[in-house]
Simulated scan of single mutants.
Amino acid sequence: MAGRISDEELKERVRSLLQVDKDLRGYGLNADVVQGEVQLQGIVDTLKEKERAEKLASSIPGVKGVANAISVSTDGAIRNRDVATEVTEELATNHRVDLRRIGVAAVDRGTVVLKGHTDDTREIEAARTAAASARGVTDVVTDVKPEKKEPTLKDIFHNQVRNDKEEG
């Protein structure tokens, strides 16, 4: 088939990209390719690095899909509260995240749940990215709701008028 890139060529392109990337080159990540599908393997320190490897592999023309089997590991046992502390520190250092609106709700074996209220999708994504940068995080669940608005006097008045009509 003319124009189709061979699996071997794709494998070399993916491996090369992973080896030259400043954030990933020290990990010795591996890639195999079967019928255009990339299988990534190896160990990294953060979820952000795992996701970066997948994004890089997906960016190569000819790649049909990526199965990311990269593991996120730490240098030893890490407790849930330690992960929560690290995530909170990452959130605090990100200028796009307001800790009054988004914070850590729970951590369970590397899965972090972010909770809060904001209408800003960029802030939610910034919080997710910051959390993924923390040591020990293997997954980030975002449970951020639209911001709660305080009712105005006009809202209260109209709500009361509607209630009065329903009673009458």
Score class of each variant (00 low, 15 high):
M1P: 02
M1L: 07
R4I: 05
S6M: 01
E9G: 02
R15K: 09
S16I: 00
R25G: 04
L29H: 05
N30I: 01
N30P: 01
V33R: 01
V34N: 06
V34S: 05
E37N: 08
L40Q: 05
L40T: 03
Q41G: 01
D45A: 13
D45I: 07
R52E: 13
K55A: 07
K55E: 15
K55F: 05
P61C: 00
P61V: 01
A67D: 04
A69L: 08
I70R: 01
I70Y: 04
I70G: 04
R81F: 10
V83S: 03
V83I: 15
V83E: 04
T85F: 11
T85W: 00
T85C: 03
V87P: 10
V87T: 11
E89F: 06
E89D: 12
A92Q: 10
H95E: 15
R96F: 04
R101P: 00
G103Q: 07
V112W: 09
L114I: 08
G116C: 05
D120E: 04
T121R: 12
T121V: 09
E125G: 00
A127C: 08
R128D: 08
T129G: 03
A132Y: 07
A134S: 13
G136H: 11
T138A: 06
V140C: 08
K148N: 08
K149E: 13
D155H: 07
N159H: 09
N163Y: 05
E166K: 14
G168P: 06
